[in-house]
Design a protein around this nucleic acid. Structure first.
Length: 514
RNA sequence: GCCGAGGUAGCUCAGUUGGUUAGAGCACCAGAUUGUGGUUCUGGGGGUCAUGGGUUCGAAUCUCAUCCUCGGUACCA
């Protein structure tokens, strides 16, 4: 015997949850296809080195992912793909590190790099002329997080679309449109979501103008700015400077100890955008800044282009806004970044009001494929967090109606099992979903409760009497449910929802009812 | 990781200043209904009070440790 239990952060999904999940996936996929994306899949497990530098033996970087040694011994390769040999010229074997995918973007980069590997080796593809790939993909991704926030799991689904092989900024604008369209197709109302757009080049350009050019500093500063909506502008200023003490938790948070003057400049820049503002106003403000390095200028002109396209297609401020304080966590983004926030709150199981936060994210990552291919390949994409969205739809009671169950054939009499099977098979050839009741408890009440729970539309009752008379009793469970609240007299109710039909007409009658 | 709050039936929880046999609602099972869903009514099963030690005549209740859960905070490629 063992104690049956699940790993923390992993879930079982029942029929209702699956119904909602696949509604989300099918709706979004429909939109992705409309824009010309094709459906790809990649394995759940990858060689760790292909997913980035997150190896289990480098403590810091292994955090947050599931990695382990491959039980299979395989040849060791150098980074050009050649087998490494020892002094006796034998191939060196090792157990490679494997990692469960933590998103769908890194595996895409691997897939794309792999497909170009040989061509690139023989110099048959040139930078700037790499093939175009537009794919969408959905599936589980895995992250190890010690403590889970509400609505977050260690295994969760993402629903990505990416365009690899072009640096045309139009695809970035398109990504925003796709996110908006997909969410509306899923059923979100227009004022329940907002796509937020920023460009990493703008903050980067600002930092360059302040003579902050170290990668680590830049990352740290961006990380703190990203927390603005959580800790407030004052909190950001404190964490950039001397640090702060969180009031609620009394936690001491160390600051970056940046000079006051520079902190003031950064805060001054950000606070200019703190008021909700139109895209045009934000662009105007960005242009008016006295910053003239190339990174900054590029960032602003890219945003300008995105605004042009969005505006021309009537994607207005009620769907897509610019937010110069939005950063996003993933380190591989190099240009425009997107995030979708669910607007509004919900009440959790204890009645507490909660904010939802972001439900989609994405951006341009022009350097990711290069890491494994050794050649620059521009790419942009975004992802819908399926489980988060499902959670929100459930909590705000926007779930689809319970799916209709199968027609149920009540098993009265074991001797009639062959007859039940014949009826079921006959109906199935007409594309009707049918189930013969197999439960061990055969009393009628039990069987009808079972049918009720599965939302069965019709029950077919054939006992010895019916069989001998060549008839079947058919009960309309769907109608019965509707009438249950109106009719109190059981006898009358039964007469309304139940009828006897001839055995040879049964299939025909069921087809009429369903 | 840090701070705080918790752990009592399958689920949600109540349980007085320590005092007989630890309760409720939901769910489950059965009957009222001699083969007929919902509602209603009646009855029934189900708990090593997270685990281990301590205090006490006596512990779900006080105490210590451990484990786990939740909230906040930090981290999040």
């Amino acid at each position: 015997m063992s104690y049956p239990r699940k790993i923390k952060g992993f879930r079982d999904i029942d029929a209702n949850m699956n119904q909602l999940r696949w509604k989300i996936i099918n709706s979004a996929a429909k939109v992705y296809k409309k824009y010309g994306f094709e459906h790809y899949d990649t394995p759940v497990l990858e060689y760790s080195e292909n997913l980035g530098k997150y190896l289990p033996d480098s403590e810091e970087l292994a955090e947050g992912v599931y990695s382990f040694n491959n039980p299979e011994l395989e040849p060791k390769f150098d980074n050009k793909g050649a087998e490494i040999r020892d002094e006796r010229n034998n191939v060196v074997m090792e157990n490679h590190y494997l990692t469960m995918r933590y998103d769908l973007t890194a595996p895409l980069a691997r897939l794309y790099a792999e497909s170009l590997w040989e061509l690139h080796k023989h110099k048959q593809v040139q930078e700037g002329k790499t093939p175009l790939l537009r794919r969408y993909q959905y599936g589980q991704v895995f992250r190890f997080e010690a403590k889970l926030d509400p609505g977050r799991f260690r295994e969760f689904w993402q629903l990505d679309f990416d365009t690899v092989g072009t640096d045309d900024i139009t695809t970035d604008a398109e990504a925003c449109m796709i996110l908006a369209d997909a969410l509306e197709e899923i059923g979100l109302k227009r004022d329940n979501y907002i796509v937020k757009v920023n460009n990493r080049k703008i903050i980067k350009g600002l930092l360059i103008s302040l003579e902050i050019t170290e990668d680590a500093d830049e990352q740290n500063i961006m990380r703190i700015i990203d927390k603005a909506d959580k800790i407030g502008m004052q909190g950001v200023a404190q964490e950039l400077g001397q640090g702060r003490v969180d009031e609620k938790s009394k936690a001491k948070i160390e600051g970056l100890n940046i000079d006051n003057e520079i902190v003031d400049q950064i805060m001054g820049f950000l606070s200019d955008f703190s008021e909700i503002n139109t895209r045009a106003n934000i662009l105007e403000k960005l242009n008016s800044k006295n910053i003239d390095n190339q990174t900054y200028t590029e960032g602003v002109s890219e945003l300008t282009k995105i605004d042009e396209i969005l505006s021309a297609l009537n994607f207005d401020e009620n769907r897509v806004i610019f937010d110069p304080t939005m950063i996003r966590g993933m380190g591989y983004y190099t240009g425009p970044i997107f995030e979708v926030e669910y607007v509004g709150t919900y009440k959790d199981s204890k009645g507490r009001k909660r904010k939802v936060g972001s439900i989609c994210g994405g951006g341009r990552y022009d350097g990711l494929v290069e890491k494994s291919l050794g050649m620059k390949v521009p790419a942009v994409g975004a992802s819908i967090g399926v489980d988060r969205l499902a959670e929100i739809l459930t909590l705000t009671k926007q779930t689809p109606e319970l799916a209709q169950g199968p027609v149920i054939i009540i098993a009265f009499d074991d001797n009639l099992m062959t007859e039940y099977q014949k009826i079921a098979y006959e109906l199935r050839t007409k594309d009707i979903e049918v189930e013969v009741y197999y439960g061990s408890r055969k009393n009628l009440k039990k069987q009808l409760s079972y049918a009720d729970k599965k939302n069965c539309p019709i029950a077919i009752l054939i006992g010895e009497n019916e069989f001998n008379n060549g008839v079947a009793t058919v009960r309309n469970l769907k109608l019965g449910k509707e009438l249950a609240s109106q009719i109190t007299d059981k006898k009358e109710w039964r007469e309304r929802v139940q009828s006897e039909v001839k055995r040879e007409n049964l299939t025909e009658e069921i087809l009429k009812m369903i």
